[in-house]
Amino acid sequence: MQFALIDESRYAEEMSQTVMPALAACCDEGWFDPSDAEREAGLTPLAPGADPFASSADGSAAHDGKLHYLCYDVTKFANLREPGATAAFRGAVVLSHGFTEFAEKYSEMIWYFLLNGYSVCALDHRGHGKSARDMDNPSLVWIDDWRRYVADLAGFAQTLGRSYADGQPLHLYCHSMGGGIGAAVLERYPDLFDKAVLSCPMIAPATGMPNWLARTLSETMCALGMGRSRVFGQTDFDGTLDLGSHPYSSHARERWYHQMRCAHAEYQTYSAAFEWVRQSLRLSRAVLDRESCAAIETPLTLFQAGHDVWVLNEPQNRFVERVQAGGGSARLVRIDDSEHEIFSMPNAVLGPYLDQILEFFAEPISESV
């Protein structure tokens, strides 16, 4: 590693005084219209629906139905001459975040990609961040069809991602729900990305019960017209941070993410509607289809956490095995002492994780296959 990780003892100070100003200096913010990509995937674009932020001061009413993104130009970043930054331009990374997350949460990871010569294009998935909403309650996430997530991400990568890659490699970095979406993109758009990292991907969610039972329950609730209702036992975001539920993570990082969430109402998604659960389980079944796994041509590395309570590990194993059986290049890396968000772990875990990602992206394609 040619650059220094952020000092956890001075984390908030370094993020606020160094990282965030540098990111702001090279960031292009915009709204992506997913209509064409959705039509090409056989989906009817959704009409603008409920949006709890439609009257906000940032003019979000003018972006009905569109998806918010942050794109970071490594050429502009290089002009800042940050210590440890490479002079090489290595292409672009498309970033796909997890359930109830938002693109800006990944500011530290984006910083490291920029230091290593990659532009970064990060999309707020539908129902998340500043993107189009379909629910009055800003804490609740709903989606009508998992294929919409897939079409949106693919369309974003084909346009903004390729533009920022500028003829150089285009890679994918995705986490949790974003990893399940990313896996489906790799199956349906096999020549879109040069490399892909799936970090604790939601190949199958952990629902708190056997997933066959969760599938039956969610299908039943949706059939009864409860698809937009909150899943039992979940609540609105209330601003509470329980560090006791993150015994292995970097508490400095957890506090930073939480403060960012508290400061922005758009970042306070927190619970699932029954339709989201139904679609996540349908996504899982589709991603694990043997023929779909065999269609993957993009070399991929899947990182698995030993203390993951949000997604299931065994389906990740099956996914990698099926990609390999179909002739694809897939590697599984298990990090025993990590929670679900490996990028939130202490530097002792984060450093080797980053090293492996960057080495994988830098390998010639022939060595990854």
Rank of each mutant, 00 (worst) to 15 (best):
H128W: 07
T100K: 12
Q259I: 04
G59H: 00
A22Y: 04
G179W: 10
G129W: 00
D64F: 00
N116K: 10
E40Y: 02
E187H: 05
T86K: 12
Y353T: 07
P190A: 09
D336R: 14
G129V: 00
R228H: 13
L217T: 11
D194Y: 00
F156D: 12
A183V: 04
L95D: 01
L153W: 11
I335Y: 13
A78D: 15
L123E: 03
A305M: 12
F113H: 08
D7I: 06
V349Y: 06
V277N: 08
G65C: 10
H246M: 13
Y267I: 04
K195T: 06
C262H: 02
E104H: 14
Y149I: 01
D64S: 00
Q356H: 11
L23S: 05
H340Y: 09
H307N: 06
L80A: 15
Y118A: 01
E363K: 06
T235W: 05
E101N: 09
Q268P: 11
L302I: 11
H246W: 11
E8P: 11
G208I: 14
A37F: 01
A4N: 08
A61N: 13
I110Q: 07
P346K: 13
T100A: 05
P48N: 08
G178N: 08
I181D: 10
F361G: 08
G208M: 10
S176W: 13
G42T: 12
